Simulated scan of single mutants.
Amino acid sequence: MTFASPLLMAPPKVFLPLLLAFSIILAPACSTDNGEDAPSASSDTTSIPFDNEGQLAFVQDRDTLVLIDLEIAESDSAQKRGMMQREGFPNETSGMLFPFDEERKRSFWMANTPLSLDLFFISADSQIVRIKKYAQPNSATSIPSQAPAQYVLETGAGFADSYGIVEGDRVRWRRTDE
């Protein structure tokens, strides 16, 4: 006696959309301009808690515009994952900081990031050298720093506009355990 899967016995009108949806999930990853693979689609829907590890102040003309709580993505895995598969920050004044060992041109993407973000590219001397506002969610398109940066900060989309933060402003950050 042979058993056939009900899915295989489905009419083509039902089977084809299911096959297309499944093939999209398993499609090969996109490549960025620096040769690294963009993260592939994932079914991981685990909620990742925000770890408050520091604070960052945005400074304009020696005045602090706003102080935010930071999660610091230092390990390779934390830097690769970033805000992927997260639903958002705990509040408007939270962000994720990516500190790197050296200052150089950087490139980020929004693959598997379901929310729009503002990205701040920051030089070694703490100056904001580029702001990419309202980065498109779930996009593997490369977002270049256009100038050397040692840090990248991600906040919720609209943050730069809400607080009047512009390129040329500076940041000061510290860990909360220091």
Rank of each mutant, 00 (worst) to 15 (best):
S145W: 01
L97I: 09
T45D: 10
A57H: 12
S77Y: 01
F159D: 06
D37H: 10
I24D: 06
K133M: 09
F50D: 10
E71T: 00
I128N: 09
M1I: 04
R130Q: 12
L117E: 13
L20E: 00
N52R: 13
A29I: 01
V166K: 13
D76H: 03
R170N: 15
M1W: 02
P137K: 09
Q55N: 08
S139R: 01
Q146S: 14
S31W: 03
V129A: 08
D33L: 14
G164W: 02
A27C: 10
L67Q: 13
L26M: 11
D69T: 01
I122L: 11
G164N: 10
D63C: 03
S23R: 01
R106Q: 15
T141G: 06
M83F: 09
M84Y: 03
W173H: 14
T2L: 12
F15E: 01
L117F: 11
S31A: 13
Q85S: 04
T45I: 02
K105E: 15
Y151T: 04
E103L: 02
D61M: 10
Q60E: 13
S126C: 01
M1Q: 09
P6Y: 06
V152S: 10
F58H: 07
A57M: 12
N52H: 13
D101N: 11
L16A: 15
A147C: 00
Q136H: 11
